[in-house]
């Protein structure tokens, strides 16, 4: 068996807002983040990507090592997607961190109940934005170990 060079597993962002995605990427760049980033504009796209078997399709990209997810998505919303993911054994090893405008305690509690690995409210000021993204990437990529094994 030929040993292939493992691709670096990407960071996946589920975000329907182009503006938010742009600001997030800007903040990532400011913190010097180098991993590949893939984006899904909706829950359906995210699901196809994470679990192509569902549509009898072949996997193209490698599985992400971490998913950042907005709650307010068109169609199937973030919470529903989180619930579906929590039922898929194959995906349980991928942590999902929620990034939302909402600070509703009910939302926060529900997300943790469905297995979210964290909950971040989207900051209002860019300065705070950078701080939060720095802390986030520092934790997940410099502090703790993420599953890197091949699928």
């Amino acid at each position: 068996m030929v040993k292939t060079i493992k691709k670096m597993r990407p960071l996946m962002i589920v975000e329907d807002s182009d503006e938010d995605f742009e600001v997030f990427c800007w903040a990532l760049q400011k913190t010097g983040f180098t991993r590949p980033v893939i984006r899904a504009e909706s829950a359906e796209v995210a699901l196809t990507h994470l679990f192509p078997e569902l549509l009898q399709a072949d996997r193209i990209d490698p599985l992400p090592c971490l998913v950042l997810m907005d709650l307010n998505l068109p169609g199937v919303n973030g919470l529903q997607l989180l619930e579906q993911l929590s039922k898929m054994k194959q995906l349980l090893s991928i942590p999902v961190v929620i990034m939302s405008t909402s600070n509703n305690p009910l939302d926060i509690e529900a997300c943790y109940c469905f297995g979210a690995a964290g909950y971040i409210t989207k900051p209002f000021k860019l300065e705070d934005y950078i701080e939060k993204v720095r802390a986030l990437t520092h934790y997940w990529f410099n502090t703790v170990m993420l599953p890197e094994g091949s699928d």
């Binding site: 807002s17 503006e19 938010d20 600001v23 800007w26 307010n72 939302s100 405008t101 909402s102 509703n104 009910l106 939302d107 989207k122 209002f124 000021k125 860019l126 934005y129």
Partner: peptide
């Protein structure tokens, strides 16, 4: 829930404007 949803919907574009203005400035 309605109150939270409304605040959410109001805050989101507001934050967008604020972010973009800041980006512009920076």
């Amino acid at each position: 829930s309605f109150v939270y949803a409304s605040f959410h919907d109001l805050k989101e574009p507001l934050r967008g404007i604020h972010n973009y203005a800041e980006l512009l400035k920076l």
